[in-house]
């Protein structure tokens, strides 16, 4: 369940990274303050994002080293569904069909092993420093 909360946060951050999208949404409110929106946008622009592609039943790159606070987004580019599941239970995606994505923000340093729970031969690692 905790994983689910993290996922929600990660998706929100991604949306905000879209910049104009967030401001546009906020501006629809009558009392929307651009001053309020800007710090949020500034904060996310500092956060790093990284991509992992799933191709041919492999995570690419298989090992990824990122700074604390990085959001990693996995994209399934196979014709077969995959999952992204932390071996230690830190994060767990729903099943990802073709072109679907999963994001997770790594707030703490450490080594995070993960695998595809449907095809457990598929393994990967995120090292957070």
């Amino acid at each position: 369940m905790r994983g689910g909360v993290f996922v929600g946060g990660a998706v929100l951050m991604l949306a905000m990274a879209g910049g104009g999208f967030v401001r546009g949404t906020v501006a629809r409110g009558e009392n929307a303050s651009p001053v309020l929106a800007q710090p949020a946008a500034a904060a996310t622009s500092q956060a790093k994002t990284m991509e992992v592609k799933i191709d041919n039943f492999k995570f690419g790159p298989e090992a990824l080293t990122v700074p604390v606070g990085t959001t990693v987004t996995w994209t399934n580019r196979d014709d077969i569904p995959h999952t992204v599941v932390s071996t230690e239970g830190v994060f767990k995606s729903k099943v990802l069909d073709t072109d679907e994505k999963f994001s997770f923000t790594f707030a703490k340093a450490g080594a995070y092993d993960y695998f595809c729970s449907i095809h457990p031969k598929m393994v990967g690692k995120v090292i957070v420093q």
Binding site: F115, P120, K121
Partner: peptide, 8 residues
Amino acid sequence: MNLKAGGL
């Protein structure tokens, strides 16, 4: 069910 990382 309950497949383990790296396993069959």
